[in-house]
Simulated assay, not measured.
Amino acid sequence: MGRSYAEQDVASQTPEGIADRQNVLNQIDRKYGLPEGTMDALWAQESGRGKNAKDSSAGAQGDFQIMPDVAREAHIDPHNWRQAASYAAMRVAHDRDQFGSLAAGIASYNAGAVRISGLQKRYGNEWQSHAPQETIDYINSISRAVDAANQRASTSSNSHTVNHTFGDTHMTVNTKASDPREVARAIKSAQDGHQRRLTWQANMGLT
């Protein structure tokens, strides 16, 4: 049985507390249709997973650096971790749908929807190369973290390797299985993970 929310708050800066919150963020990723690891990467980017959760010079507050007027409009407390995490995910998912890509949704969280809208109107599909450097770095940092999280997830239970060619891609598939049917399932899982990474990279404008 997992820790209660109160226990998570008390232990939030212990390894166990951070792991509890990462599990919550994985659930939030699934709720809003975000790639696994997206909200954990955003949490790390915004406040170092809570280590730097201080009010910014611009006034942003809490683990997810939400402005007070935005929090009031959304009826959330930016210092309430669970409320802030859910709001941040909702914002990223909403802006992803509004602006057409996950990269744009993440950029909007960093730079604001008005700026991303203006960039897209002016530069079309080339908007990202004209974004502020801080925003470009923000997108790239989260992209790398999510890609790494998905690679870890696909290899976390491995003990030996099977070489396999998938289309034009040669893969080394790690699996515990020896039964051919289990090996086939491991290969299919690796293919699915590879396709998720390609989709993520395409969404982020990295291909």
Rank of each mutant, 00 (worst) to 15 (best):
M1R: 13
G2W: 11
V10G: 00
P15V: 06
E16K: 10
G17P: 04
Q22D: 09
N23L: 10
Q27M: 12
I28C: 08
D29Q: 02
P35M: 04
E36D: 09
T38N: 05
D40H: 13
W43A: 08
W43F: 08
A44C: 04
Q45W: 00
G50W: 09
G50H: 09
N52C: 02
K54I: 13
G59Q: 11
A60I: 11
Q61C: 14
Q61L: 14
G62H: 08
Q65H: 10
Q65V: 09
D69S: 12
V70N: 08
A71Y: 09
A71R: 01
E73W: 04
D77S: 15
P78W: 11
P78R: 09
A89G: 14
A89Q: 02
V92T: 07
V92A: 05
A93C: 13
D97Q: 15
F99M: 10
G105C: 02
I106E: 02
A107N: 02
A107I: 00
V114A: 15
V114G: 14
R115L: 07
I116N: 01
S117R: 12
G118D: 01
R122D: 07
A131L: 00
P132Q: 07
P132A: 09
E134L: 04
T135D: 01
D137K: 09
I139N: 02
A145S: 15
A145K: 15
V146K: 05
S157P: 00
H160C: 01
H160W: 10
V162P: 02
T169I: 13
H170E: 12
M171S: 03
T172V: 15
D179A: 11
D179I: 01
P180H: 09
V183P: 02
I187G: 12
K188V: 04
R197D: 07
T207Y: 06
